[in-house]
């Protein structure tokens, strides 16, 4: 009797399972063929903190106050303040380095910035075979910001 019950259960579960998978035959596929077909990123996705450029002047918003450097938990941001010929401190960064291999994309630097100089980009294809290539200087960070911005405009997002 127990054997008959097991045979019945087996037949029933085969029928139930196959009827569920058969239904999928009549639905549209949900697969996305990634490298050929790129789904747009969700609004507000974070991939790397980048430096914003003032559109009017073409200069960085950053005044090198160092608040993001101090707020960064894994210390992946390094800022060097610019000095003029007399050695007085200027309000722009001489160097701004971001080590993406240490960055954990936590957004704490963006929240710490009082001058709206940092933003989270949503460019994800930043892989590299060399760890050294993941250390970005200020020109590269501004370039990534421009790419991210143009992608967002193409995506129909109002800035």
């Amino acid at each position: 009797m127990a054997l008959l019950g097991r045979i019945w259960n087996t037949a029933k579960s085969m029928f139930v399972g196959h009827s569920i998978t058969l239904r999928e035959m009549f639905t549209t596929p949900i697969t996305v063929f990634y490298p050929e077909e790129k789904p747009p990123m969700e609004r507000g996705s974070r991939s790397v903190p980048v430096l914003k450029v003032n559109e009017g002047t073409g200069l960085l918003n950053c005044v090198s106050c160092g608040l993001c450097e101090r707020s960064c938990p894994p210390s992946c941001i390094k800022i060097e303040q610019a000095l003029d010929a007399k050695g007085d401190r200027q309000s722009w960064p001489e160097a701004f380095e971001l080590n993406l291999s240490h960055c954990m994309v936590c957004n704490l630097c963006v929240e710490a910035c009082p001058f709206d100089a940092l933003e989270m980009a949503d460019v994800v294809e930043l892989c590299s075979y060399q760890v050294q290539d993941l250390i970005f200087d200020k020109q590269q960070l501004a370039e990534i910001w421009k790419t991210s911005r143009s992608l967002r405009v193409a995506n129909g997002e109002r800035l």
Binding site: S45, R46, V105, N107
Partner: peptide
């Protein structure tokens, strides 16, 4: 995970 990404900005490590 798309819902989480919309709300938090990341898919697994949300911060």
């Amino acid at each position: 995970y798309t819902l989480m990404e919309k709300a938090t900005g990341a898919r697994m490590l949300y911060a």
